[in-house]
Amino acid sequence: MAYQLDKFEKGLKDLQIELSDEQVQQFLTYYEKLVETNKVMNLTAITEFEEVVEKHFLDSLSLVKVCDLSKEIRILDLGSGAGFPGIPLKIAFPELEIVLADSLNKRINFLQDVIEELDLKKITAVHARAEELARNKEYREGFDLCVSRAVANLSTLSEYCMPFVKIGGNFISYKSGEIDEEVLNAKHAIFLLGGKTKEVFKFDLYEQKRSFVIIEKTKGTPKAYPRKAGTPSKQPLG
């Protein structure tokens, strides 16, 4: 099938990302697999090609605005869902080591199929809740960077994500819309979890207002966090 790639090519150029023909083909194969699987499983409400390019592919890759992805760093994509941002980042920057984590097993099966079909290396998909995974020594404080596009308030997301970040590493939350009040409300939680907000980077992606909240891990996260399953979302740290 022929795709209109103008928007994708322009978006990549704006982000100063160069892809080989093979990498572009990987994105197209990923798109086809996403749309096909979406017919039998709810992965995304967005299925039209140009919208997926804008709201999933380019949005995921926008991380280059705030992060040097040419380095060989270990990244956790928490609550990866259909693979965003982890799979686009992996396709565009093959040297990254990425772990995709999601609490729904059928999404993990989809992600494993994508990894296999695209022949991606140094990337794994793990079925687990954040609360359980954070108790695993292999993962706790084992990542240079944790990213999440999950829809949750910043206090809750920080409790899920910060335990995975090495001291000196970062948690970067993908956010949309007006974010200042949410960042302010999460300040105490972030401090409790061993972090500090380094930067809130705001940008426009076509008609969308987007932000990255960059939180640096300055000291170890206390063992009590994250609290037991469900608590971080029901009772965010104040």
Rank of each mutant, 00 (worst) to 15 (best):
Leu154Ile: 12
Gly142Met: 08
Glu97Met: 06
Ser158Lys: 02
Asn136Gln: 15
Leu145Thr: 09
Lys122His: 13
Arg107Ile: 09
Phe93Tyr: 09
Asn136Ile: 13
Asn109Ser: 15
Ser148Leu: 13
Lys166Gly: 05
Pro94Gly: 10
Lys106His: 13
Val165Gly: 06
Ile167Asp: 13
Gln112Pro: 01
Ile115Asn: 02
Leu145Cys: 07
Asn170His: 12
Asp113Gln: 11
Tyr139Gln: 11
Ser158Val: 09
Gly142Leu: 09
Ile172Gly: 04
Ala152Ile: 01
Gly177Cys: 10
Phe93Cys: 07
Cys146Trp: 03
Ser176Lys: 14
Cys146Met: 10
Arg135Met: 14
Lys122Gln: 13
Val165Glu: 09
Gly142Lys: 07
Glu138Val: 08
Gly169Asn: 05
Gly86Thr: 04
Glu141Met: 11
Phe143Ile: 05
Arg107Met: 11
Ala101Val: 05
Ile98Lys: 02
Arg149Ala: 08
Glu138Gly: 11
Val165Ser: 06
Gly177Tyr: 15
Leu145Val: 06
Phe164Asn: 08
Asn170Asp: 11
Lys166Met: 13
Pro88His: 04
Ala128Gly: 00
Gly177Asn: 11
Pro85Asn: 07
Cys146Pro: 06
Gly168Arg: 03
Ile91Trp: 05
Phe171Trp: 05
Lys106Gln: 10
Asp113Trp: 00
Ala125Trp: 01
Glu97Gln: 05
Leu118Trp: 01
Lys166His: 11
Ile167Gln: 15
Gly169Ala: 09
Leu157Tyr: 04
Val165Ala: 07
Asp119Gly: 12
Thr124Val: 14
Ser155Trp: 01
Leu154Asn: 02
Phe164Val: 09
Asp119Asn: 14
Leu157His: 03
Phe171Gln: 07
Ser176Trp: 07
Val126Arg: 07
Ile98Trp: 00
Pro94Cys: 06
Asn105Phe: 14
Ala101Ile: 03
Ile87Tyr: 04
Ile167Tyr: 12
Lys175Ile: 08
Leu157Phe: 01
Leu133Val: 02
Ser103His: 10
Ser176Cys: 12
Leu111Glu: 02
Ser155Ala: 10
Thr156Ile: 09
Asp113Ile: 02
Pro94Thr: 12
Glu159Phe: 15
Pro94Leu: 06
Ile172Tyr: 04
Glu131Ser: 10
Tyr174Thr: 14
Pro163Arg: 14
Ala130Leu: 06
Asn109Glu: 12
Gly177Pro: 02
Pro94Ser: 09
Tyr139His: 15
Lys175His: 11
Asp144Trp: 12
Leu104Cys: 03
Leu145Phe: 05
Asn136Met: 15
Tyr139Cys: 06
Ala125Arg: 01
Pro94Lys: 08
Arg129Val: 01
Phe110Arg: 00
Glu97Cys: 10
Arg140His: 10
Lys137Glu: 15
Cys146Ala: 14
Leu100Val: 02
Tyr160Ala: 05
Ile98Asp: 05
Gly168Tyr: 13
Lys106Pro: 01
Phe164Lys: 07
Asp102Gly: 03
Leu96His: 04
Ile87Glu: 02
Phe93Trp: 03
Ile108Lys: 01
Ile91Val: 12
Asp119Tyr: 13
Phe143Arg: 10
Leu96Val: 03
